[in-house]
Computed example of a mutant assay.
Amino acid sequence: MLQSGDIAPLFSLPDADMETFDLASVAGKHHLVLYFYPRDRTPGCTLQAADFSDREGEFARHGCIVVGVSPDDCMTHADFRDEEGLSIRLLSDPDKDVCKLYGVWRQKEVDGVNRMGVRRSTFIIDKQGTIRHTFYDVVPRGHAAAVFELVKKLESDNAESNRKK
């Protein structure tokens, strides 16, 4: 499992518009909230995506972008985004390569049956590409607000560090 202080593994994935999101392209420019969720249109996933979308402008004002990742394909993401009025980027990882890279593809028990699935997880990555906060087995309600508070602190700590230089 990745932890605070680890360097975020680089990746590229397509989004709902089939445009590539490349983690390396945000390095030095933005903080990143990278969250993994099981699939589109489930109640928890919808709540989480809507909460992050509702706060997207606030995140942006603090130098941060938010992207969600699930194994759903690009078309499913596009339909989900459009139906729910979501504004954040949803990335498609159908081969689960990035889910595995971040250690969130795991065996879990659902209704007494063991199967593989995405562990709902969030990583806050700073502008230098270092993971600053990790959350595993996330409860969607209130999560976006808690993450936003950490991003605000991260940006103010970053500004303070730059003033001292």
Rank of each mutant, 00 (worst) to 15 (best):
F123I: 12
F123Y: 15
G85I: 10
Y136M: 03
V67Y: 09
G142F: 05
F148P: 02
Y136N: 04
V113N: 06
W105N: 08
T122W: 07
D95G: 11
R106P: 04
E58K: 14
L101R: 06
H77W: 05
H62V: 01
K96I: 02
G112R: 09
K108F: 00
L86P: 04
G85R: 02
S70R: 01
R119W: 13
R141N: 11
V67S: 01
V113L: 02
V113M: 04
Y136W: 12
A49H: 09
T134D: 06
A144Q: 04
A78Q: 15
H133P: 05
P43K: 06
C45Y: 09
Y102G: 00
M116C: 05
K100F: 00
V110M: 13
L86W: 00
F80V: 01
P94V: 01
E58T: 05
E56Y: 13
Q48H: 13
A60E: 13
H62P: 04
L90N: 05
I65C: 12
D82M: 02
F123D: 02
S92I: 03
G85Y: 07
I124P: 11
R106V: 15
Q128N: 14
C99G: 08
A60Y: 00
T76P: 08
D82I: 03
C64E: 00
Y102M: 03
K108M: 13
C45R: 01
L91H: 04
E83W: 09
P43F: 06
C64A: 15
E58Q: 15
Q128P: 00
G68V: 01
G68K: 04
C99K: 02
H77C: 02
D54A: 15
P94N: 08
G117M: 11
R115Y: 12
L91K: 03
G117L: 08
D137R: 00
I125V: 15
L47P: 04
D111V: 08
S87L: 11
Y102W: 04
H143P: 04
V104P: 03
V104M: 08
D126W: 04
R55V: 06
H77P: 00
D79S: 15
R81S: 09
S53G: 10
T76S: 15
V138T: 12
I124D: 11
R141T: 14
P43H: 02
V138M: 01
I124Y: 02
K100P: 00
G44P: 05
Q107S: 10
G68Q: 07
D126A: 06
G129W: 11
T122S: 13
D79E: 12
V67A: 12
F135I: 03
K96Q: 12
G142M: 10
S121H: 08
Q107K: 13
M116N: 10
D111A: 14
E58W: 05
D111G: 10
G103H: 02
V147N: 04
S121Y: 10
D111W: 15
G142A: 05
I88K: 10
L90T: 00
V110C: 09
D79Q: 08
R81T: 15
P71Q: 11
W105M: 10
H77D: 13
I88G: 01
S121W: 14
E84D: 06
M75I: 14
P94Y: 06
D82A: 11
D97M: 13
S121G: 07
P43T: 13
A144N: 09
H77A: 07
V110D: 08
H143S: 08
V113F: 01
R61Y: 01
R141P: 04
D51S: 14
R81W: 00
A144W: 08
S121N: 10
R115D: 01
S87R: 15
F148L: 15
G85P: 12
E84G: 05
